[in-house]
């Protein structure tokens, strides 16, 4: 680990539009990305709904921020852990989620997936391996 670089995990557990948590979390991630830390995002419980495809908010008059997740790679945020049990409980599979990728600067800009589907126990390990955890 480089000097001064800490592992930050943003934990997303809320659905996207019913409350402001999901949008606020994303804004904090984008702003925080300027500080060159080792950032990961975790999506569990209703947080997995944030990443679903096909969101169209025109008729409810709020901003559809789901496309913004696809910009995270530009901000060097490339690890989006999604809990499989949370998907299962909600009748969702990985196919219901957007394709989110990043270009790997160290591998000739190869396009790689940012979403990592993990089990609940693997998610627990991800959480236990962090320096700082921010909950939304």
């Amino acid at each position: 680990m480089e000097d001064g670089v800490k592992k930050f995990l943003y934990v997303n557990r809320k659905a996207p539009y019913g409350t402001i948590y999901a949008l606020e979390a994303l804004e904090v991630v984008l702003i925080g990305a300027a500080f060159d830390q080792d950032v990961s995002l975790a999506f569990l419980d209703d947080g997995v709904f944030q990443l679903t495809k096909g969101q169209d908010t025109k008729e409810i008059g709020v901003k559809n921020f789901s496309p913004t997740f696809r910009a995270l790679g530009d901000y060097e945020v490339t690890k989006l852990y999604v809990e499989k049990e949370s998907l299962d409980e909600r009748g969702l599979t990985a196919d219901d989620l957007q394709d989110i990728t990043y270009e790997d600067e160290d591998d000739d800009w190869a396009e790689k997936p940012s979403i990592l589907i993990v089990s609940r126990s693997e998610m627990a390990d991800v959480m236990a391996g962090q320096d700082v955890i921010l909950s939304f």
Partner: peptide, 18 residues
Amino acid sequence: DYYEEYQIAPAVRVLIKA
């Protein structure tokens, strides 16, 4: 174009890199 695709204006360093 960036805003159209991602619904945000990019940060300066993202803009410059692109």
